[in-house]
Design a protein around this nucleic acid. Structure first.
Lengths: 213, 213
DNA sequence: CGATGTGAAGCAATTCACAGCT
DNA sequence: AGCTGTGAATTGCTTCACATCG
């Protein structure tokens, strides 16, 4: 075993947060040890895949017993960098932006929204969820001064590319994009897209196929 | 070429909506023909992958020329079942539910939200975005009577599994889940999860890895 | 025994490369 | 000449199966 992080397949990284979610549920249920078989039945996946995934990073289990839940959740958190705070900003304070900034799920996981931006002059200066809304022109200086690493983009599709360009120019390295467009970013920038319509549009294929039969 | 829809890999189905998005942009730009190379550079992917993906469904292109944009977007829409309306309901009318029901992106793509449910007695009976909020007990009768096929779940994590069980019992076949939990559904139910925290938690891995070097 | 960790095997997806059409 | 459609080659991922250990 080698633990070369560059050799870990992307799909494996995408699954780690799901393992963490499941392990936290088990922790709440006072379970202190779990086997790959139990975790697999919980997440509806093959035990072998879980063991192989974990083996990219180390030997976390005990033969004949399984994995210590608390230990494993901490190890995985460390691998993903969840053992520290990530300064985050939000661009776009429309209805979606409002919902995002008021969503209580980010902070407990270490994603602290420390700045918010909008182009609407009526929004600028108002206080939303304890954060003052700044004008778009403040994006650069704010990100640089506060060393914000992640941006959440919740602007209309038309503005998204220009906003993302500004963010990257200011030093942002990770982007969570809610705008329904395919954005272009340099290879060293990590982006995730959240687009409910795209999700539904592949879902319907299976609905169609399942219904005729 | 055979066009057996059961033989199409899931990853291919997941990419079709992205092609549609891109093609619609090109349509707006009055482009009437596009090559796999152009589309690939637009979407940052390999031309061969696009051609192979499309070849699962038919021969849509012309050699030496490329693909007719309007024709291809219509074909793909038909394959995914986007050429008709999908009756959709929304469960959970908190901040997230409000944002979802007011999001103007669903209806133009054929996803009509025709019913909304909540457990909060103060919400029930109110009118949100032209739709009256019904109590949870109405889920079954409403879905059955109106033949709703898709449900969007925007309730707290704790209630999500029970809500999903009710929806499936009432005949829902597709679920777009916003609750941050791993839900269990039968194999004939199609589910998509939207969880921004999970998205961020894999993003951070690459931020960590890129910064040390 | 019971369960991990892991090479090897098997399967799936991507990319190559080129015949064939326009 | 340019570009599609597609077998073949390649690359990547998942699952098997078992040595090994508690």
């Amino acid at each position: 075993m080698d633990t070369n992080l560059n050799a870990v397949p992307d799909v494996v990284i995408l699954r780690l947060p799901l393992y963490i979610r499941a392990l936290n549920v088990l922790l709440n249920e006072q379970k202190d040890v779990v086997s790959s078989r139990q975790l697999g039945s919980f997440l509806q996946m093959e035990p072998a895949q879980i063991r192989k995934d974990l083996s990219y990073f180390g030997r976390f289990g005990k033969q004949g017993r399984g994995y210590n839940v608390e230990f494993l959740v901490n190890e995985l958190g460390q691998i993903l960098g969840l053992d520290r705070k990530w300064l985050t900003c939000l661009v776009g304070m429309g209805r979606l932006g409002q919902a995002i900034i008021n969503y209580p799920g980010f902070a407990p996981e270490g994603f602290d929204i420390v700045a918010a931006f909008d182009s609407d002059t009526r929004q600028i200066g108002t206080d939303v969820g304890g954060i003052k809304v700044l004008p778009m022109l403040s994006i650069g200086p704010t990100i640089e001064k506060r060393k914000v690493a992640i941006a959440i983009v919740a602007v209309p599709a038309q503005q998204a590319q220009s906003v993302v360009d500004q963010l990257i120019h200011a030093g942002i390295k990770g982007i969570l994009n809610y705008a329904p467009v395919a954005l272009k970013v340099p290879t060293d920038i990590v982006m995730r897209n959240i687009d409910p319509v795209v999700s539904l549009q592949s879902l319907t294929f299976y609905l169609l196929r399942n219904q005729q039969r």
